[in-house]
Simulated assay, not measured.
Amino acid sequence: MRTTIAVVFGGQSSEHGVSCLTAREVLAVIDRDRYDVVPVGITTDGRWVEETAVWDDLEPGVLPKVRDDMPPFSWDRIRDLDVVFPLLHGPWGEDGTVQGMLELSGVRYVGAGVLASAVGMDKPFTKTVFSAAGLPQLPYVTIQPWEWDAKRDRVRARVHALGLPVFVKPARAGSSSGVTPVHHWEDFDVAVETARTFDPKVIVESAANGKREVECAVIQDEHGMPIASEVGEIVVAAEADHEYYDFEAKYLDGTSTNVVPADLPESVRQRIREYALQAFDAIGCEGLARVDFFLTDSVGGGLVINEINTMPGFTPFSMFPKLWAASGVDYPELVERLIQLALQRPLGLR
């Protein structure tokens, strides 16, 4: 019998459109001679539908969307699937929720399991795990919902100890959604409220001095051993109106460039690879991840870890596949490797 693969995309997070772009590209390279492929979209209100991932009328700078008028996906089909490729970014998909559903259904899937997905999505918990693993990080403060509502002066005092500037972020979001750089304390409360429109829990991080943003990708080999890719750097055009690598620079206005390999000494690139593998192991990740770093003027010998993405952007122009292309694994082979890893992975506790 032929292997049946469901590619799941869309979802209820702010990264819905990015997930759709990723799915369109992955679906284009899956070998239809080997696999029966079932595209499954999740609408912005959480309904699962039989989506085609074909959008012919997109204007420049407009992200696709799962259509509301598609036929519903029958849940009776879930156990007939051999593997699910959950190309979901952000909460309600990348955070262990869908992974838990698949575990309960006895269905294999690509990528991190429940715990690693949840830890990787929740930035404060990620930082706690990374700290225990000895990885260098920037100072930060977590703001719980009750604390902001009842102890706001105490929150401000803790955050002021970080010094300016700081970055205020939703604790469980990606693609720079809801992120605000703060250079003056009078702007802090507004930045927190902006982040809270995405997530009631907020994280505030010290800004890196003279930072360069560098990234490394990780996949497992056929024996389950994590291997690290070449190192790349994100460069935002100097003339662009972006203070940092925000959502528009990433996906909409073409002002950012992925430079692979990064122009760094080999000793630094090797340290980044080692930290990426250490981060992958620290959260118990599986399948794939992209690990992001800052190169700074002062902290941690110039290198600090920023975050780990357990389901990174996967268009051919995204950093994750570009890093692997530079490491000798092209886009179709990368997709095939991840499918095979999922098919080989045992069900149940691992």
Rank of each mutant, 00 (worst) to 15 (best):
M225L: 10
V214A: 00
E205Y: 02
V202I: 07
K201V: 02
H89C: 11
T257P: 04
L341I: 14
H160F: 07
M311C: 05
G61M: 08
D68C: 03
L347Y: 11
R24E: 12
V18C: 06
V40F: 07
D292W: 01
I308M: 13
R196L: 07
V190I: 04
K322E: 01
V7P: 02
A161Y: 01
D149H: 14
Y109P: 13
P64M: 11
A191H: 00
P200Y: 06
V107T: 02
V159E: 02
R154N: 10
D57C: 08
A262Y: 14
W48F: 10
V182Y: 04
P316R: 03
E233P: 15
Q220L: 13
K151V: 03
S298H: 13
A276V: 04
A249Q: 12
G10K: 05
H89D: 08
S74D: 15
V192N: 03
E103S: 11
Q270K: 15
H160C: 02
F317E: 05
V37W: 00
Y251K: 11
T22R: 03
V83S: 01
L21R: 12
R290L: 00
S177Q: 01
E336G: 10
K123V: 12
Q99N: 12
E274M: 06
E59G: 13
V38D: 05
L338G: 07
Q340K: 15
S256L: 08
F130Q: 01
F247A: 06
R47Y: 02
G134D: 03
D82M: 08
C20H: 04
D31L: 00
T255K: 11
E248M: 11
A23T: 01
T257Y: 13
L104G: 02
D153K: 09
I305L: 15
V40Y: 05
V231A: 09
V236D: 02
V29A: 14
K123S: 02
G41F: 07
H184R: 15
E94T: 03
P124T: 06
N309L: 05
R337L: 12
A171K: 00
M1W: 01
F73I: 00
N309H: 07
W48E: 00
S318F: 14
R271Q: 09
H160K: 12
V291P: 05
P316M: 03
G301L: 01
L264H: 07
I203N: 07
V190R: 14
D82N: 12
I272E: 03
G210E: 04
T142W: 12
G17I: 06
T97Y: 08
Y140H: 15
L303N: 03
S177A: 15
Q137R: 15
F188I: 05
E15D: 03
A276R: 10
S229T: 04
L135V: 15
V66N: 04
L58M: 14
R2Y: 00
A207P: 02
T257K: 09
D330Q: 09
F293Y: 12
S117L: 12
V190C: 08
P71A: 13
F280R: 03
Y244M: 06
G254H: 05
